[in-house]
Amino acid sequence: MQRPHSPTLRRRRLSAELKRARARAKLTTTQAIKSLGWAAGKLSQIENAETQKVKPDDLDKMLDLYEIKDPAKREALHALARDAKVRGWWSKYKEVFGPQSLPDFEAEASAIRTFEGLVVPGLLQTPDYAQAVIQGGRYTSAEEVERRVKARMERRDILTRFKPASLRVILDEAVLHRVIGSPPVMAEQLRHLLHMAKLPNIDLQVVPFAAGAHAAFVAPFSILDFPDPLDAPIVFVDTASGGLFLEESDEVESHIVTFGDVQGSAMSASQSARLITEVLKTLESKS
């Protein structure tokens, strides 16, 4: 089975490769535009990954100008351009995920680190729990709730597919005690967490109340790493308007440090599983 890829990442990788090729050819953007006979904004859109489609003829013109003659290299760049045009499954949920889609990046992520202080992260939610979370916000029609839940459930495939992404989750203990939906829904969710925590690609840790203040008294965030060294890590910060992507190296590094700090306040994976089990038993005894 072929592993899904991120069109956005492929587009960014292509733009980075073309910028490097132009620099190696010792051409300024002005010189390249003049030689290619293009309008001023066209090259800028390609080099800044602002266009989804780079025509094969246009790409060949750039490769000829930059004196890239190796057939294998040229084909690899054409493959990137083709992949950048492919629409992922998430495109049918554009109204759910928005124009810059988290699943687009999750599709190709090799590792994801997530901190959550209020609810179970979407990648680990059960359908009923996800429905309750979505219904807890602004009034939403039953049809839209169903569609949002379905979209969220499709995201989870990255954890169980062939060559799954590795997921490291840090939860504040408050997540375990906040009963979302109903006690049975919450119990099912906690059992699901324990099941997922047994998978070799998933690590789940809890920051206990006893830890007091910790480094992640901030908005929930995820750090996504990618297998290709040309693709720098990015940070996704959940917001009321859908989410924010951070890509500047200092912003990414700040969140990496924060994740490391809060991980230092968390219990081990086995201790965390025991705590989840205790909370689950208490919840079941009240049902």
Score class of each variant (00 low, 15 high):
residue 251 E to Q: 15
residue 28 T to N: 04
residue 52 Q to D: 12
residue 198 K to E: 15
residue 264 G to P: 05
residue 240 A to Y: 12
residue 112 I to Q: 00
residue 155 R to Q: 03
residue 127 P to C: 08
residue 206 V to L: 07
residue 4 P to C: 07
residue 246 L to A: 08
residue 132 A to R: 06
residue 248 E to F: 13
residue 163 K to S: 15
residue 126 T to F: 04
residue 149 V to L: 05
residue 255 H to F: 14
residue 112 I to E: 00
residue 257 V to W: 13
residue 260 G to N: 13
residue 22 R to W: 02
residue 162 F to D: 15
residue 245 F to Y: 12
residue 36 L to K: 01
residue 86 V to Y: 02
residue 273 A to F: 06
residue 125 Q to F: 01
residue 120 V to P: 00
residue 151 A to M: 01
residue 167 L to Q: 11
residue 49 A to S: 08
residue 286 K to V: 10
residue 231 D to S: 07
residue 4 P to I: 02
residue 134 I to M: 05
residue 68 I to A: 03
residue 109 A to G: 06
residue 55 K to L: 15
residue 163 K to C: 12
residue 191 R to G: 06
residue 149 V to F: 04
residue 189 Q to A: 07
residue 155 R to T: 01
residue 120 V to D: 03
residue 258 T to Q: 11
residue 179 V to M: 10
residue 92 K to P: 06
residue 157 D to V: 08
residue 248 E to L: 14
residue 132 A to G: 11
residue 179 V to S: 11
residue 120 V to H: 01
residue 200 P to C: 05
residue 249 S to F: 11
residue 65 L to S: 03
residue 121 P to M: 00
residue 238 D to E: 09
residue 20 R to T: 11
residue 47 E to K: 01
residue 62 M to N: 08
residue 106 E to Q: 07
residue 90 W to S: 01
residue 244 L to C: 12
residue 36 L to V: 01
residue 282 T to L: 13
residue 283 L to E: 08
residue 237 V to G: 06
residue 89 W to L: 03
residue 275 L to A: 07
residue 220 P to R: 10
residue 189 Q to M: 03
residue 189 Q to K: 07
residue 181 G to Q: 10
residue 18 L to I: 01
residue 17 E to I: 06
residue 42 K to Y: 07
residue 143 E to Q: 15
residue 111 A to T: 13
residue 20 R to G: 12
residue 128 D to R: 06
residue 266 A to L: 05
residue 78 H to D: 12
residue 153 M to I: 05
residue 268 S to G: 12
residue 59 L to R: 09
residue 285 S to C: 08
residue 207 V to P: 03
residue 8 T to K: 05
residue 179 V to P: 06
residue 214 H to S: 10
residue 187 A to P: 10
residue 159 L to A: 00
residue 144 E to P: 13
residue 118 L to S: 11
residue 59 L to H: 03
residue 241 S to T: 14
residue 117 G to Q: 01
residue 22 R to C: 07
residue 264 G to N: 08
residue 30 T to D: 14
residue 101 S to Y: 01
residue 42 K to Q: 10
residue 86 V to C: 09
residue 134 I to C: 05
residue 101 S to T: 01
residue 235 V to L: 05
residue 217 F to P: 06
residue 116 E to Y: 04
residue 70 D to N: 09
residue 162 F to H: 14
residue 107 A to S: 09
residue 184 P to Q: 11
residue 182 S to G: 12
residue 284 E to F: 04
residue 17 E to A: 13
residue 222 S to T: 07
residue 102 L to P: 00
residue 118 L to D: 12
residue 181 G to E: 09
residue 264 G to Q: 09
residue 232 A to M: 14
residue 222 S to M: 08
residue 243 G to M: 04
residue 230 L to W: 14
residue 188 E to K: 14
residue 254 S to A: 07
residue 148 R to W: 04
residue 89 W to I: 03
residue 283 L to P: 05
residue 124 L to N: 00
residue 60 D to Y: 07
